[in-house]
C-alpha cells in the first residue's frame, strides 16, 4: 500500500512510518476480533499442536514407524488387557508401534495439506488474476474449464487424475490439489473484478503502472484476506481427500504411515483390534476440525462485514 501511495500523489499522502503503524494497528484489530472467538483460538491451538508434532516427529516417536516388533502383533493399547507401556497405543497386525505411526502420520498429513494448498493456491490465484484482470475470452475459457472441474465430484476427479498419473502419495496430492483449484480461481477472480475498477487502481494506471504492477503490487495484496481463509479451509479439504484416497487404496502405498492408509489396512481387524480403526480416524477428525475452526475464525476476523 505504501509504495502505491507514493506513486499516486492525488491520494492522501502516507509515509512509510505511518503505513507501518497502520499495518500494526490492523494486525492488532485482527487479533482482537480473532481472540474473541473461542472456537478460532481452539482451532489455532489444535493446528499448532499438530504442526509441532509433525516437526518434532523423530524426537517424539519412541520407535521408527515402519519398524516391525517381532512377537507383538496386534497388541492392545496400554490401558487394555494385555497392553504394555512399551506400546502406548498398541501395535498393528505386523507388529509396528501405532503411537509412532500416528506421530509420523501427522508429518505426512500436515505435509500433504501444505502441498495441496501451495499447489492449488498458486495455480488458482494466477488463473483467477488472469481471468479477472484480462477478462474477455480468456475469462470465458478459464471459467468454463473450472465449471468442468466442478462438475465432477471431488473424489471422482481425484480418481481420474490418479488413474492417469498412477497410484502414489505425490499423485494423490496433485489430484486433490486440482480438485481444490476452482475455489481459489472463483474467489480471486471475483475479488479482482471489484478491485480493478477502484480509484486507486485506475489512478495508478493513469500514472503509467503496467499490467504486472497493477496485478501483483496493487490488486493482489487487496485480494489476500479471502484467499487466506480459503487456503486454511483448503488444508482440511486436502487432508481429508488425500486420506480418503489412501483409504480407497489409491493414495500412499502401504508401509507409509499415512492415516487414511492405516485405516484401510485396519478394516480387516475391526473386530479383533478396534483401536487400529479408532485412532487414525480420530487424528484425521481432530486436524480437520482444527483447520475448519481456524478458517471460520479467520473469516469472521478478516471480513469487515461480519464485525459488529
Amino acid at each position: 500500500m505504501a509504495v502505491q501511495a507514493v506513486n499516486t500523489p492525488p491520494l492522501p499522502p502516507t509515509t512509510e512510518a505511518q503505513a507501518a503503524t497502520g499495518f500494526k494497528a490492523e494486525l492488532k484489530e485482527f487479533w482482537y476480533f480473532f481472540s474473541q472467538n473461542r472456537g478460532a483460538v481452539g482451532g489455532l491451538v489444535i493446528v499448532a499442536l499438530f504442526v509441532l508434532v509433525a516437526i518434532l516427529a523423530p524426537l517424539l516417536a519412541p520407535y521408527d514407524p515402519t519398524l516391525i516388533h517381532e512377537g507383538v502383533f496386534t497388541q492392545g493399547p496400554a490401558w487394555s488387557m494385555g497392553g504394555s507401556m512399551k506400546h502406548i497405543f498398541g501395535t498393528d497386525d505386523v507388529g509396528r508401534d501405532v503411537f509412532s505411526r500416528l506421530i509420523y502420520g501427522a508429518r505426512i498429513s500436515m505435509g500433504v495439506g501444505f502441498m495441496v494448498v501451495v499447489f492449488s493456491l498458486s495455480i488458482g490465484t494466477l488463473l483467477g488474476l488472469l481471468a479477472g484482470y484480462v477478462g474477455g475470452w480468456v475469462d470465458t475459457v478459464v471459467m468454463r474449464a473450472m465449471d468442468i472441474l466442478m462438475a465432477l465430484p471431488s473424489i471422482l476427479l481425484a480418481i481420474v487424475v490418479v488413474t492417469i498419473l498412477g497410484q502414489n502419495l505425490v499423485n494423490a496430492v496433485i489430484a486433490v490439489g486440482i480438485v481444490v483449484i476452482p475455489g481459489f480461481v472463483r474467489l480471486v477472480r471475483a475479488q479482482v473484478m471489484i478491485e480493478k475498477n477502484r480509484q486507486y487502481v485506475v489512478a495508478s494506471g493513469s500514472f503509467g503502472a503496467g499490467p504486472f504492477r497493477q496485478v501483483f503490487v496493487n490488486i493482489l495484496p487487496n485480494c489476500m484476506a479471502p484467499v487466506i481463509v480459503q487456503g486454511t479451509l483448503g488444508f482440511s479439504d486436502g487432508i481429508l481427500n488425500v486420506a480418503a484416497l489412501g483409504f480407497l487404496g489409491l493414495g500412499a502405498k502401504p508401509p507409509t504411515a499415512e492415516w487414511g492408509t492405516m485405516l484401510s489396512d485396519a478394516r480387516a481387524f475391526i473386530e479383533s483390534a478396534p483401536w487400529l480403526v479408532t485412532l487414525p480416524g480420530l487424528c484425521i477428525l481432530i486436524v480437520v476440525l482444527g483447520f475448519n475452526l481456524l478458517g471460520d475464525g479467520l473469516r469472521d476476523a478478516l471480513d469487515p462485514r461480519l464485525k459488529k
Partner: peptide, 22 residues
C-alpha cells in the same frame, strides 16, 4: 455440526459398524 462437517466419513462408517454391528 462442525464436528459432523469435518467428519472423515470413511472412518465414521467404520465406527458405526464397530458400535452397532460388532
Amino acid at each position: 455440526s462442525l464436528i459432523g462437517y469435518s467428519m472423515p466419513i470413511f472412518w465414521w462408517g467404520l465406527i458405526l459398524i464397530l458400535i452397532f454391528s460388532v
